[in-house]
Structures are given as structure tokens and as C-alpha cells.
Design a protein around this nucleic acid. Structure first.
Lengths: 353, 353
DNA sequence: CCACTAACTTTACGCGCGTAAAATTTTTGT
DNA sequence: ACAAAAATTTTACGCGCGTAAAGTTAGTGG
């Protein structure tokens, strides 16, 4: 029979690189359409066929050409992950978790960062269109984003917004419950010492900041305490430097009305800590300390500030899982009406407050 | 007026998505092969033809299908950028610069992180093969990398190694001059106070650490000072925590033989600063300080530690420019023998030492 | 054992574009 | 203005794979 010929051919081709699926199908002894079926879903072929293919796969490391595959697929397996600023370890960390979840779900994630600039964000979205992704996990820049571009993008590509909500775009929104964050930590600060002032950027990059300010004001009113918001100047994403300079100015102006400061986010708090250090002001809850400082976010770095920063931490796992699962469900056709899911944070007590 | 009708018509056509290059060529009044030529090099067509195409391009936002393009191209315009750990802002920053340079040079960069794990690095390299990139900019994990896999990858794909060298793989190596880093900052520390001890990980993830230790030993010998290396336990990439715990242990053991500590890298130094804080040890060069701490890398965060960290900074711009240009030259066929380029660092004096 | 169904093979077409070759047009140099 | 050179058009094929249709083989239950 030509079974022998096939066997001989197989041995000859053994080390030679497989060019395409045709060749691979030949040496695995399975027809090309079936092999194609296997690669699109290994479970869709008979166990014995699958075994034969996977055996051949061990000998000759063949992988279908992504470009040829995606040209014909209507639904690419690509997923875009977009964050505003990858240099911020918070976003790097959440992106990392999302990436893993995509891989586990059988998608090919590609990471993008807007690098804090709206024009870059537009660039990213444009090149993302070219990828024809099955879906996109997008954390927008926020205030500086080009909302028209965002909305149009969401209309064309299945997009799940996370971290920061900018209107009811996309499939849904998943992020942290900023009101709960601020209410919770404000409550803690009030119960353990003087009520906090609120330290924030005057024109924050991110809409979450507004929610946090409002939650602070509401909480203080509820607790019957006088509220005091200190809004510092500064544009862009260099939060630490803005917090540092704003901190110095606030001290000069005597802006802190109590000995406790709740910062709008951890990076701002880190800058404020630096300012405190530079002014010789001791931070913490010890007897020799003159000020308490708390942050919000549970930034990866907050454990290692001096003093270590008391903060309220994002639930990275739940946020990333919820966001990814929502997107995958939508891709699979389980369409649900737009909704906003906000995950609660967990208080992380350290020595700064 | 019919101005309105025209506008309406334009909008209608505008919305009508162009399916392929055939259609776009038709409405731009140019033949498809010429349009194809234009997209591969806009300068290769006659100025008037180019103008007509670009005019049509404004009305109907058409872009060639990447997948179809890359299927036929021998040389993809894709470039992979691989770093060991994107959560580390140092790598995020260098990756950002490399990304910009790729875009400016007309390539499509894709970012990957090994997330500190060797198996992830292998995964990344495998999926990178599938992209059939024109070239790859790779910063290996280092010690834990699967060297065989790396070598094979470099043999198959034009790869420029940066940051950390692991043998003479790839096209060339571009990184920082670790010997100069350590020699320079050791010299500074010796001239301004007690000679430094060297604080490092016993089993560093990265081969640069060995160069730095050796440079320290050589420098101390040259300066006629007694050297003292403190090697702390710890595996993985959680350098801050390793530095913190190692710092505590070193203090307990009385391991610091002088009042000055040079850390192998900034993240380790950040952890050591935290340990100092936790033990109530004041760091800096002030009269009331009992220890000086310096780092190496110019980590984005080093400005905001308490006290701000004296360190020696990578020249991010020069490293990224040199690395990217070397890769692009190689892609363009300007093959040169393997060489190692090491860029000098710049001393950043702050208050920690 | 037969009938039936699921899985597979064969055959064939199309996706969107690169690219080559030959024919035609436009531009350039003088 | 005319011939040579350059650019463009026409025509045609191929890339690697998805996928549909029809025929064939292998597994299933009774």
C-alpha cells in the first residue's frame, strides 16, 4: 500500500521545517480540513485523530500562520489591553493579571499604553482597529481622553471599560468602588485620630478623583466633622512630583487644618511623604509624629515608603477577573445591558496613619 | 443648498466602509498595484498619484489589512519588545522609549513581559515566533532564563539583546556599563565619607549584579580600602522585600562594617531604606544620620524615597536609541559582527548619601 | 449483523494582498 | 517636439488557511 510510502515520506520530512498546514496534514496522515478543525478546537475531532495529530506535533513543531488564520476568521482571537500609563506599577500589575486571564481563556492579548497622552491613546486605538480584535479591555486616560474617539471605537469594537469610567460606553464598566474606598478610610481615620483633610489634584487626570472627593465630603458631613479639601496645581501624570510640590505649598500656606491627611491616591501620598521628609516633618501615628498621611489604591510601592503607607487597596484579582469574564461572555454572544460593577477595597493598615 | 446635499453624500460615502484595496483603488482612481506600492512606501509613487491617494484617504479611512499584508511580506514590520518584568518601572520606562523609537522608524512594536518567570519568557518567545517579526529587542531574565531556548530564538529571529547580557547571542548587546556605574559611585562614596559596604542579593536574578559586585571589589582594592560584601537571601524579583528583610538581618548581625552602604540596585536600596525606617535608623549625610545608603539604576522612584536616594542613573535615552538603531540597521541588512556596547551612567546626588 | 450517525476525506473556492510581466501612459531630457 | 526613461495599468498568479459540499469511512445502538 502507499502506507509504506507515507511512512517513508514522514521520515524524510522529519527534520525539515513544515511550511504549511498541507505539509503537516500529510505527515500526520490526516486531511488538512480536519487538521484545521483541530487547531480551531482540539476537542472537536475524534480522540484517536487528535492523538495522531498531537503525536505528529511533537515531532515537527508546526504552528498555523497567525496572519493567514486571522485573514479568514471573522472573529480573531486577539484581545487588546489598554492602560493609560504602563510606567505606573498599578496599571502594570492590573494589566499583568488581565493578560494571564486572556491567555488562560485562549486569547492572544496585546498590551498597549497611552503613556499618559491623549494623542497616544488615539494612536493606540487606531492601531488596535487594525488588529481586528475579538475584544478590548480598555482603561481610558479619563479627562483628557478624546471622548468622541472613544465612543466611536466602542461602537465598532467590543470593548469593556475598566478602572475609570467615562460615560456609558462599551459593553460594561468594571472598576473599584471609589465611594466605598474613601468612605471606609475616612471612617477609619476619624475613629483613630483627628478627622482628615483631603489632599488632591485640582484638575485630576482621572474621574475617579472626583468621586473620591465627593465621598470624602459626604462622609465628613455624615460624621459631623468639618471638611477641608486641599487642591494642588499640576497637570499630567507625574503625581509624585505634583504631590511633593503641592505638599510644600500646602505647608507654607498652613493649609492642613488637622494633623491628618487623606490623599486622593497613593502616588500623591508618596510625593507628600517626600515633602514631609524634606521639611523634617515626622509622619505616622507615633507620639513623636506630627502628621498622619493615608493614601488610596494599594499601590505596589506603598508597602515600602517611609513610613509604610496606610491605604485602601484595590482588589486586583476580583477586578481583573470580573472585567475579563465580562468581556469573554460578551464575545461569546452573551450580551447583557450596560452595567457598572464596582468592587470594594480592603483597608491596609500600616504605620503612616 | 446643494452644499448640504454634498455634505450629506460625503457622509454617506464616508460611512460606507471600504472592504479592500480593490475598492479603495477604484474610488481613488488609481490601480491596485500602485496603491499597494504607495502603502509600502508613499515616496515610491509619483507626487500627483500620491496626492490623489491621500486625498481619497481623507474621505474614506481605509487601511490595508495587516493580516493579509503580513502573509505575503517576507519582511514583517512587526518588532517585539521583551522585558523581564513590566511591573518594574525601570523596564516600563525603557520599554516605552523603545516603543516610541520603533513607531518613529515605521515599525509596529508589540510589548511583552516575562513577568519574572522563565517559563513565561519561553512562552513569550514562542508566541513571538508566530508574529514573524522583522526583529526583536530582548532584555532577558538573566540567570533563570532558558539559555538554550534563548540561543535558538536568536538564531532564528534577528534579536538585539539589551539591559542584561547572557552570552554572545543575537545581533549585538546594548546596555549600561555596570563597571563604570559601580566604580563611579564607589569613588564618590569613598571621597565623601566612610568607604561603602556592598549590599546585594546572594543569588541575583540578573548577571549585571555580578559585574557590579566585582567592580566594587576592584574599586575598593584600588582605593586601598577594605571591602565588605553583604549578600542577602531571597529568590525572585521582589527586590524591595528582599532588601527590607535582608536589611533587618544585616543590622541584627552587625554586618555593616562602615556607616555607608552601596546597594546593588535601587529597588534593593528602597527595601533597605524601609528596614532602616522600621528600626528607627536615620539615613542620610546629615549630622544626625547614622548611615548613608546609595543605590544604582536611577529608578524612576528613587527621587521620592525618604530620604531621596543617591544613585547612578541609566542613560535611558542613549541606551534605547543605540539599541533600536542597531536593530534597525541589522534589519536593513547592515550586518556587523557581534559587539557589546555599554553606556555610562550619570551620578544623581540626593540626600541619602 | 444492519442501519444510522458522526467523523473524516476530497474537492474546490475565496479571503486581501504582494508581486511579477507585459502593455500603456506620462514625464523627462535635449 | 521627439525619443528615452519612468511611472502606471492590466493581467495573472500565489500565499496559508477557513470553510462549504459531497462522498467515504468509522463508530454507535439495537
Amino acid at each position: 500500500m502507499d502506507g509504506e510510502r507515507k511512512e517513508a515520506a514522514r521520515r524524510r520530512v522529519r527534520m525539515a521545517k513544515i511550511k504549511n498546514m498541507e505539509e503537516f496534514a500529510a505527515i500526520s496522515g490526516i486531511s488538512r480540513p480536519t487538521v484545521s478543525k483541530y487547531f480551531n478546537d482540539p476537542g472537536s475531532v475524534r480522540p484517536r485523530t487528535r492523538a495522531r495529530i498531537e503525536e505528529a506535533l511533537k515531532e515537527h513543531d508546526y504552528r498555523p500562520n497567525i496572519y493567514a488564520v486571522n485573514q479568514n476568521r471573522k472573529l480573531t482571537k486577539a484581545v487588546g489591553i489598554v492602560v493609560p500609563l504602563l510606567v505606573d506599577p498599578y496599571f502594570a500589575e492590573i494589566a499583568r493579571k488581565l493578560e494571564r486571564r486572556c491567555i488562560e481563556a485562549g486569547y492572544r492579548p496585546t498590551l498597549f499604553s497611552a503613556h499618559g497622552q491623549a494623542d497616544h491613546e488615539v494612536e493606540v486605538l487606531e492601531s488596535l482597529r487594525g488588529l481586528k480584535p475579538a475584544g478590548v479591555l480598555l482603561a481610558p486616560l479619563g479627562r483628557s481622553s478624546d471622548h468622541a474617539v472613544l465612543e466611536k471605537f466602542c461602537a465598532d469594537v467590543p470593548t469593556l471599560i475598566f478602572d475609570s469610567s467615562v460615560g456609558e460606553f462599551g459593553l460594561s464598566f468594571v472598576g473599584s468602588d471609589n465611594r466605598q474606598f474613601t468612605t471606609h478610610i475616612t471612617d477609619y481615620l476619624c475613629r483613630t485620630g483627628e478627622p482628615p483633610c483631603f489632599f488632591e489634584m485640582k484638575t485630576p487626570a482621572n474621574p475617579n478623583a472626583h468621586r473620591r472627593r465627593q465621598a470624602y465630603l459626604d462622609a465628613m458631613e455624615q460624621f459631623g466633622q468639618p471638611a477641608k479639601v486641599i487642591s494642588v496645581e499640576g497637570e499630567g501624570w507625574a503625581f509624585e512630583e505634583i504631590g511633593r510640590q503641592g505638599g510644600h505649598k500646602a505647608f507654607e500656606d498652613g493649609a492642613f487644618s488637622t494633623n491628618t491627611v487623606l490623599c486622593s491616591n497613593d502616588r500623591l501620598a508618596i510625593g507628600l511623604l517626600t515633602a514631609c521628609y524634606e521639611r523634617g516633618i515626622k509622619v505616622g501615628r507615633g507620639a513623636d509624629c506630627s502628621i498622619r498621611v493615608a493614601g488610596q489604591d494599594g499601590h505596589p510601592h506603598s508597602r515600602f515608603t517611609c513610613p509604610p503607607l496606610t491605604t485602601i487597596s484595590h482588589d486586583y484579582d476580583t477586578v481583573s477577573r470580573t472585567a475579563a469574564d465580562s468581556l469573554f461572555a460578551a464575545i461569546d454572544g452573551h450580551v447583557t445591558p450596560w452595567k457598572s460593577t464596582r468592587i470594594e477595597g480592603k483597608l491596609t493598615l500600616r504605620s503612616s496613619a
